[in-house]
């Protein structure tokens, strides 16, 4: 399993409206593989922790593609959602996968069992826009279009609700790797920060509102903490992505080029020095956080890129 070449361990995948998923050589900007995602656009992408498969959330399905073959078609199809699947992610050991959809449901899919039984489902009242797994691996934070954040405890099935702002859709939720902060962005461009206090065994995480700021002028689409928890990146329909210092939530960098249009997704390198963005101009971009300059473009998609997945490793 570890005899793969070094480059295989740095994986960048992008997908969007042109019904393809592309894999890139990150250092040269060359696309080395294109996978077909014929039936729908790509809503979200995530690579499994063992870097063997990539999951694409799409309309009514989640498709899994093999990263280690040249098969352009999906090898697994998770079926049964009635509307768009909006988010997808994995438990850290790859035991199960979670997904959220516009059918107002959050589902857990057992990846280990040979049977197809799905262990859990969680229903809310509005279409689910985002799902975020707490680093403790037992709590899911679910955002929906009515502006509610649900904390769902997987062990006890208890849940609790937060409403940071009425009349605003929660578009993304992020929790930093230490589990001390949670960020949520909404369609008004605002960003809310909570400090999290982990409970003892089986006690729920406590959330205390900490900060609120105007991150963008228009829809904020994605937020993500850096692996070292020092930065938060937010992306937006105002054609920018912004890097914020998590110490005082001051603006660190504005990542902007002419005509990049909506910035949909972002991912940090594991040493928190670079950040990838995916935007509607059909290009993924890599930015240096120190200087705020764009260092490379990954061009090749015919239409907007709406999702991006990146896996890095330490040296």
């Amino acid at each position: 399993m570890f005899d793969k070449s070094e480059m295989d361990q740095v994986l960048l995948a992008t997908g969007g409206y042109d019904h393809t998923i592309k894999l890139w050589h990150t250092h040269s900007g060359i696309c080395y593989r294109t996978m077909q995602h014929a039936e729908s656009q790509v809503n979200a992408l995530e690579i499994t922790p063992d870097k063997q498969l990539i999951a694409a959330a799409s309309y009514q399905h989640i498709y899994m593609y093999d990263l280690n073959s040249n098969n352009p078609n999906a090898i697994v199809n998770y079926d049964g959602t009635t509307k768009n699947v909006t988010d997808v992610g994995f438990q850290v050991d790859g035991k199960w996968m979670y997904s959220g959809g516009e059918d107002c449901r959050v589902r857990l899919w057992d990846l280990r069992s040979k049977g197809t039984q799905c262990p859990k489902i969680f229903e809310v009242l509005a279409p689910v826009t985002c799902v975020c797994l707490h680093p403790n691996q037992v709590e899911l934070f679910v955002g929906d279009q009515s502006g509610i954040i649900h904390r769902w405890d997987l062990k006890t099935d208890h849940n609790e609700q937060l409403i940071p702002e009425s009349d605003a859709m929660i578009l993304d939720i992020a929790i930093d790797p230490l589990g001390t902060h949670m960020a949520a962005v909404n369609n008004k461009g605002r960003c809310y920060i909570w400090s999290l206090k982990s409970g003892k065994i089986d006690e729920p995480t406590k959330m205390n509102p900490k900060h609120k700021f105007e991150a963008h002028k228009r829809h904020a689409l994605k937020c993500e903490f850096s692996p070292d928890s020092r930065y938060l990146v937010t992306t937006s329909a105002d054609q920018t992505a912004k890097i914020w210092n998590t110490g005082d939530f001051s603006l660190r960098q504005e990542l902007k080029v002419e005509n990049q249009r909506w910035v949909w997704d972002a991912a940090f390198s594991s040493d928190s020095q670079y950040v990838f963005t995916a935007s509607s101009d059909g290009c993924a971009k890599i930015w240096n956080i120190e200087t705020g300059s764009m260092e490379k473009e990954y061009a090749g998609h015919q239409k907007a890129i709406t999702a991006l997945a990146f896996r890095d490793c330490a040296v």
Binding site: Q9, V10, N136, Q137, P227, D271, S272, Y274, I286
Partner: peptide, 23 residues
């Protein structure tokens, strides 16, 4: 299925991506 884990943060000085990218 649901094992509580303590969040661990491994300090990454340099990632493989950054290294090759800089090269």
């Amino acid at each position: 299925l649901f094992v509580r884990k303590e969040p661990v943060v491994s300090e990454v000085k340099q990632s493989l991506f950054s290294k090759t990218f800089k090269q």
